[in-house]
Design a protein around this nucleic acid. Structure first.
Lengths: 224, 224
DNA sequence: GCTTTGCTGTACCGCAAGTACGGTTTTGGG
DNA sequence: CCCAAAACCGTACTTGCGGTACAGCAAAGC
């Protein structure tokens, strides 16, 4: 990483922390450059305006989040061949990560931007839309894979359940931040996990048999 | 309502719409007073600064929301004596109201403030905390009443489930706004409703009897 | 050795929040 | 009807921030 890229990265890091704690509008450039140890000219050399800063910040944030999710869900697949078990494990890992963040979750940039959308241009908004949609389809695919093995107990739209994870996380972050209680977010992820468990692994009521539910085409721990 | 109070109300209404669509910081006083047809002096006669405006806006918002919830949950109790059925009915009503909002939900002031908290003083933040907590305990009480009649299928913390409603609504609003799809919010509320149904009204597995779950101390539609 | 990259420094513009304060109209009670 | 609040209007000014313009300078790399 060259010297320029290093400075850029430092600016982005400082700006992100500031935006998540006080919002985009309240994040002054003067403040950021003071912390970064550069001048205003230096800032505008890297970002042509504040909107461009937002764009780069968002790109960075989405990328980091994608990485995080990749890691969590890969780990889940590693620990169990069963898609439902894998997903439940991943959700637990996600909850743990959320709980481990020292002073509560820093917040969701998407949500932050959502409530100040008019401040941003088309490009930034398009990026938020794309990333949210990619997370939704990711979760949806996982749920559909589960559903082929464990038919849902209740007629549910898997797309809605997939959306729900993002919603619960976003809402959980807001509640955690508002009430200043970092555990709220963790517990919300775990509550969603209970929901998934109830949908897919509740005892079958059909014909009154199969009380302890098992996969349709029996793979338990070994085969694939 | 005197003339002064009328003007105040008009200012608050205009400001709220603006804040929810572009955020608090991007809402300029000049803009608000132009739309309200008053001058700057007039504005500062009613609100000593922007923070005071936020405070009054929030008070208004919380009050309106409390009224809304009162209406919805009272109606649920009117339509069924059974606490679970009443809650499920109320959730459906809530979903319908969310869907009926013309151009998508205007947004949640609490969430909007959450992501710009440093802009506000202690008083404003305390008000957000109090209102969120009051909604949580309200839902929690309802759920606990249900649980005395329908013991939950899975060991769940009712406080977490109560929190979840607010989380799902907040998250749903964000997703609806981001993706510009008003139906997302409605479907999230209905998904939460499915969760509640699964927790409390799944078939009893104890002893393999009582497949179609019924209240513990049989009140169905009549007595109270 | 010369260009490109990565900045610094200074000076300036425009907009919005907020202050100050004097003047004016409107309104309701005695 | 009068008079004192209440509910504004008008003007002028200060401060802070986003953003522009432009000149210069030091180090890195070919």
């Amino acid at each position: 990483m060259g010297k320029g890229a290093e400075t850029r990265e430092r600016i982005l890091e400082i700006a992100e922390a500031s935006v998540l704690s006080k919002g985009f509008a309240a994040t002054s450039i003067d403040e950021v450059i003071a912390e970064a140890g550069i001048t205003k000219s230096g800032f505008f050399y890297h970002f042509r305006d504040k909107n461009r800063l937002a764009h780069e910040m968002l790109r960075r944030y989405v990328e980091a989040n994608d990485h995080l999710f990749d890691g969590i869900f890969d780990r889940g697949r590693q620990l169990s061949d069963d898609p439902l078990q894998a997903f439940l494990i991943s959700l637990k890992l996600l909850a743990e990560i959320m709980a481990d963040l020292p002073n509560g979750h820093p917040g969701c940039l998407i949500a932050s931007i959502c409530y100040q959308e008019r401040l941003f241009d088309r490009e930034v908004r398009d990026l938020t839309v794309r990333s949210v949609e990619s997370w939704n389809t990711r979760f949806r695919n996982t749920l559909e894979e589960i559903a082929t093995v464990y038919p849902p107990r209740e007629p549910v739209d898997l797309g809605d359940i997939a959306d729900m994870l993002s919603c619960v996380v976003d809402g959980g972050i807001i509640m955690s931040k508002t009430l200043n209680d970092p555990h709220r977010l963790e517990r919300q992820v775990l509550a969603f996990r209970t929901f998934v468990k109830l949908i897919f692994s509740g005892p079958a009521i059909i014909d009154g048999i199969d009380l302890e539910r098992r996969p349709a085409h029996g793979s338990d721990q070994s085969s694939r």
